[in-house]
Design a protein around this nucleic acid. Structure first.
Lengths: 331, 331
DNA sequence: TCTAGTGGCGGGATCGTTACCATCACGCCC
DNA sequence: GGGCGTGATGGTAACGATCCCGCCACTAGA
C-alpha cells in the first residue's frame, strides 16, 4: 500500500480510503490510486484490514451436509442477502454430528466472524458456551429450539409432519408407516418422527409402523431398502411417510419395482419439496419448508443485528406448506 | 494472549507456542497455558496469526453451483484431504458465469489463500492474470484446459460423452438426440455437446438432433420440457443423451407421462452418475466422473505443492467410467 | 478582517499474533 | 574446569491495514 501511495503521489491513508470507497477522497486522488494499484498488481489484504478494524466481513455458517438441495437453497438465500453488504460466508458442515459441530464452531470462531448461523437447535453445552462468549449475533435455523441461543428462523418439524399425517388420514388412509433415520443423530428427523407419532395418536391410529433406515442422511437407496422391508413385514400398509423426499422417492421406486400401485395401494409422502418430488411419476406429496426463504430471513436478521436495530432475540417462524400431489390421492 | 501469559506465569511467546502445539513447550507450561485459556474463555485469533505468519490456512475453491451433488462430492473430497493439515475451505460459487468467477476470484484472493481450486478450464484474461500474480498453487478441476494455469485434475467431457454415444450405437440406436444447455455459459456442457457431435460424425450418423434446454444448470423440469419438445418435433428419435442425469431423469419422466417405453422405444442416457441414476425405474445409463476422487486428488496435489514437492505443473487425468443400465438396453 | 466550519489529506500508533534472535540452565565430554 | 550442544523460554520488532487526531486550504458569514 505504501508503494501505491508513493506511485500515486499520496499518503497510505489516502490509498486506504480510496479502497474503502467511502467518498471522502477527491476524484483525482481516487483515480491515481486505482491506476497505481492496477499497475503494481496490488491485491488488497483483508487479513490486515480485519485485524486492525476488528471486522472480518465473515459470517460463519454450519450445515449438516453439503450435499443436500434444501440446505443449498438456504445457503443461496443467505449468500444473496449478505453479499450486498460485502459479507462473505465461511462454511462448515457437521455430518449431522453435534460433536463435530462443536469442533467446527470453535474453529470458525477463530476467524472472528461477525455473525454465526447454525442449523438446528441442538448443540453441546460447550458449543453453546462458545457462541455465548463470542458475543456476536447467532441465528439458529431449520428448527424451533426449546432453548434458543439467539435469533431463530425456523419451523416445527413435528407440526409439519403432523400436517402430512392429517392429510393422509383425510384421504382415507389408516395403516400409515414412517420411514426415518437413527434417532440419536438427526434431530430434525427425530422431530419429524415425533410429529408423526403424535398425529397418529391424535387420530387414534396405530403409530408403531416405524422403519429405521439408518443414520442420516438417508439416501434414496436406503429409502428403497426400508420400503422393501416394510412391504415384507407389514404388507397391509396403505400409506408411507418418509423423513425426506429422497427416501420417499426411493420408496416409490421400490413400489414400482415390486409392481405395487402408488397411490392406489400405497400412498407415499416425503418432506422438503425437492425438485424430484414435483416431477417424478407419480409426483410426490410433500412439505415445502421454504429453504431459500429461511436463508433470506436469516440474512436479513443478521444485517439488522449488525446495525444494532435488533435489541432482543427474535424468532421468525416459517410456515411450511403442504404440497398435495398424486402420490397420496385417496384410495 | 498476554493475559493468559500472566495467568499461566509464562511469556506470551510460550502461549503462542503452546497453541501451535509444536511440542517445544514443556508439559507443565502447556498445561498451565491451556488451563488459563480455558478460564479466561480465550479464543485464538486466526486473523492476527495469518497476518504475522503470512499463512491463512485457507484454500479458496470456486464451483459453478452450490446445489449440485457432483460438486458437493468434490468438495467433500477436497475438504477431507485438506482438513488433516488444518486447511479450511473458503468457498464461492459462480453461477456458471466466467465474469462472476473473475469477481469471485478477486475477492477470494484478498483473503490470502494458500492455494486456489477453480472448476473448469475457461476463465477471463483478468482472472488468469490474478491467479498468476497470486503466486500460489492453482488447481483446475473437472476439465482438461487447453491452456492450464497450473495443476489440473480433470477429464475430457467430450471424450466421456463420446463413449456414451459409442455405447448407444453399439446397442443399435441410430437416431440419437442431445439435450443440453446454452452454449455460451456452461463450458463443460458445451464440451459434452461437442463430444456428442464428434462421436455421431465418427459413426456417420446425423448429429443435428440438438435440443437447447436453456441456461445452466438444467433442471429436471427443463429436461422434461426438452424431451417433450423433442418427441413432438422428431418423434422417430430412438435415443437421447442428456447433459446431466438430472435432465435425463426429467426426460425419462416425460416419456413415462407420454406412455413412451424406455428403453424399448427410446433409450435415455445421462451424465454424472448421480444417486438418482442408479435407483430410478428404469435405472439410467450414465458416466461416472468420480467427483469425490477429483476432490481428493486436488487436495493431494495442493498438499504436495505446499510442501514444495511439486516443481512442475501436473495434470492428473481422471478416467470416467460408463455405467450401462437398463435405460439404454438394445432396441 | 476575523472566526468558524468543511473537505481532503497525512502522521503515528496500533490490532494480536509470530519470526527472529538471544538467553539460560543443564549435562556431557575432553 | 572450560567448552559446547540441546531444550525451554523470553524480548522485540514486525505483518499490512485502519483508527484517531491534527493540519491545511478554502469558503461563508459577521
Amino acid at each position: 500500500m505504501i508503494d501505491i501511495a508513493r506511485l500515486a503521489g499520496v499518503s497510505p491513508m489516502t490509498v486506504s480510503r480510496a479502497f474503502k470507497a467511502d467518498g471522502t477522497v477527491s476524484e483525482a486522488a481516487q483515480a491515481a490510486v486505482m491506476k497505481a494499484a492496477e499497475e503494481l498488481g496490488y491485491v488488497f489484504d483483508s487479513t490486515a484490514s480485519a485485524l486492525r478494524s476488528q471486522r472480518s466481513d465473515f459470517v460463519a455458517v454450519t450445515i449438516p451436509s453439503i450435499n443436500n438441495a434444501n440446505f443449498a437453497d438456504t445457503l443461496r438465500g443467505l449468500s444473496e442477502g449478505l453479499r450486498a453488504r460485502g459479507l462473505q460466508i465461511l462454511l462448515g458442515y457437521t455430518d449431522y454430528d453435534v460433536l463435530a459441530e462443536e469442533t467446527l464452531i470453535a474453529q470458525l470462531l477463530r476467524r472472528r466472524p461477525e455473525a454465526m448461523v447454525v442449523t438446528g437447535g441442538t448443540h453441546t453445552d460447550r458449543a453453546r458456551a462458545l457462541l455465548d462468549k463470542a458475543a456476536i449475533p447467532v441465528v439458529e435455523i431449520w428448527d424451533l429450539p426449546a432453548r434458543p441461543i439467539g435469533h431463530v428462523v425456523g419451523f416445527s418439524n413435528a407440526a409439519a409432519m403432523g400436517a402430512v399425517v392429517d392429510h393422509l388420514v383425510a384421504e382415507g388412509r389408516r395403516r400409515i408407516a414412517f420411514i426415518g433415520g437413527d434417532a440419536a443423530r438427526d434431530t430434525r428427523g427425530t422431530d419429524r418422527r415425533r410429529g408423526f407419532v403424535a398425529a397418529m395418536d391424535r387420530h387414534g391410529l396405530d403409530a408403531t409402523r416405524l422403519i429405521d433406515a439408518g443414520p442420516p442422511p438417508i439416501s434414496m437407496a436406503e429409502g428403497a431398502a426400508a420400503m422393501a422391508d416394510l412391504l415384507a413385514r407389514l404388507p397391509d400398509t396403505d400409506a408411507v411417510v418418509c423423513v425426506s423426499d429422497l427416501s420417499a422417492f426411493g420408496a416409490l421406486t421400490e413400489c414400482q419395482r415390486q409392481g405395487i400401485a402408488v397411490p392406489d395401494r400405497v400412498a407415499v409422502a416425503g418432506f422438503g419439496d425437492y425438485e424430484i418430488a414435483a416431477i417424478c411419476v407419480p409426483p410426490l406429496t410433500t412439505i415445502n419448508p421454504f429453504p431459500h426463504r429461511i436463508g433470506q430471513e436469516a440474512a436479513a436478521l443478521i444485517l439488522q443485528a449488525l446495525d444494532g436495530k435488533l435489541t432482543a432475540a427474535t424468532t421468525m417462524r416459517i410456515t411450511p406448506e403442504l404440497r398435495v400431489r398424486t402420490s397420496s390421492d385417496g384410495a
